[in-house]
């Protein structure tokens, strides 16, 4: 068992010396801060629609007021859903299992009648 302890001490010392040397080499090359991938930003995707014919000036005037709300209506958002799997039991980054599309409605106020 003494041999194991001595071997361990030797390996431990070698690992620390090599680690320091390798660390400073990497630092001097300037790659130390780029070792890990950057986090990807949350993606917002617009629904693709068929290209419409160019409107006339009068049509533009008429539709100006509704442009904002229509744009919001057409926009859809990818939402990351947090679901835990057994595979996520790791040191790696946990990726959202799936993305779902949610349509954002401009006017979501709905009047409902109660059942009486």
């Amino acid at each position: 068992m003494k041999a194991i302890i001595y071997a361990g001490i030797g390996l431990f010392a070698a690992a620390s010396v090599y680690g320091v040397v390798d660390y400073y080499n990497t630092k001097s090359k300037g790659t130390l801060d780029k070792m890990y991938k950057e986090e990807e930003p949350l993606v917002t995707v617009k629904k693709e629609t068929a290209p419409a014919p160019l409107p006339t000036t009068t049509e533009i005037k008429a539709t100006t007021l509704n442009t904002t709300t229509d744009a919001v209506k057409k926009e859809s958002k990818k939402v990351k859903v947090r679901r835990i799997k057994f595979d996520d039991f790791s040191r790696g980054r946990i990726m959202p299992e799936m993305t779902i599309e949610k349509e954002i409605k401009a006017d979501s106020t709905v009047t409902t009648k109660g059942n009486r």
Binding site: A14, G19, Y23
Partner: peptide, 21 residues
């Protein structure tokens, strides 16, 4: 357990710690 920790686990862990996240 002892052999694996002393000879493999701890020294490799120490080396990798220099580049830990």
């Amino acid at each position: 357990y002892v052999t694996v920790v002393i000879v493999v686990g701890a020294p490799t862990g120490l080396y990798m710690s220099f580049f830990a996240k």
